[in-house]
């Protein structure tokens, strides 16, 4: 592999763009194929299928064996609320392979001391979210309990078709939230995508246990729900 090819793959991933690498095993020849160039490639059909599923694979092309490396953006977890649960959830999600970003305009909460080594944005979601460019490879969790912070972020997460959307709060809190969001014109079937109460039902009590319940639910949606990835591709 030429270093330039490796650098190109790394650059595409850093920009959160899907990319494919075609390796002819006999000759060792390689080419990078970006999604918009698939149609013109001799392996268009196999490349389309590989990108759709997000899975690298070995294919036959004539007499040759060809390996297709599929590189999709890393899963990301965006959280509103630099709260107690987030302190447990952020390092857990990071070790499970997620890029984690926490947003909270309340500077008393959003401090590096409370969140060492985590990408922390002490600003309002409507300022931060546009530059983060939420996508189908992003999970979003609303954890502040404060509608001024959580609601605009939920609206953005729904519009950008995040593969997972969850919101903290009791059924009663959530019912009130649904009324507020519906009043902004979001269809009920879109709102039904929000997981609330958030997290798998494992009887979680402590902040760390609730973090496990949330992360488990996020991973289940990531691994089982192909459609979100297909939409993003």
């Amino acid at each position: 592999m030429e270093l330039a090819v490796l650098e190109a793959l790394n650059a595409e991933r850093a920009a959160r763009r899907a990319t494919l690498l075609v390796t002819e095993l006999g000759s060792g020849r390689q080419r990078v194929v970006r999604p918009d160039a698939i149609a013109g490639d001799p392996l268009a059909e196999q490349l389309t299928e590989a990108l759709r599923t997000g899975r690298s694979r070995l294919v036959e092309h004539g007499d040759a064996r060809v390996f297709l490396t599929v590189q999709v953006p890393s899963p990301r977890l965006v959280i509103t609320g630099a709260v107690h649960i987030s302190q447990a959830l952020a390092p857990m999600a990071a070790s499970a392979g997620f890029d984690v970003i926490i947003i909270d305009p309340r500077t008393a909460f959003a401090t590096p001391e409370r969140f060492p080594a985590i990408d922390l944005r002490a600003a309002w979601p409507d300022r931060v979210l546009p530059e983060l460019r939420l996508d189908g490879f992003t999970a979003f969790a609303a954890l502040t309990h404060d509608p001024k912070i959580d609601d605009p972020a939920l609206v953005e997460a729904l519009a950008r078709e995040c593969f997972y959307i969850g919101a903290l709060g009791s059924r009663k809190t959530h019912a009130a939230r649904l009324e507020r969001l519906a009043a902004t014109g979001i269809p009920r079937e879109a709102l039904a995508r929000i997981h609330a109460p958030i997290g798998l039902d494992i009887g979680a009590v402590s902040p760390a246990e609730i973090a496990v319940a949330i992360l488990g639910e996020v991973i289940a949606d990531l691994r089982r729900r192909a459609p979100a990835r297909e939409r993003a591709a």
């Binding site: 270093l3 490796l6 650098e7 793959l9 790394n10 991933r13 890393s74």
Partner: peptide, 13 residues
């Protein structure tokens, strides 16, 4: 992570 591996390979080279 897989991405760390590819980043490391490029950096080493």
């Amino acid at each position: 992570r897989e991405e760390d591996v590819l980043e490391a390979a490029a950096r080493w080279r």
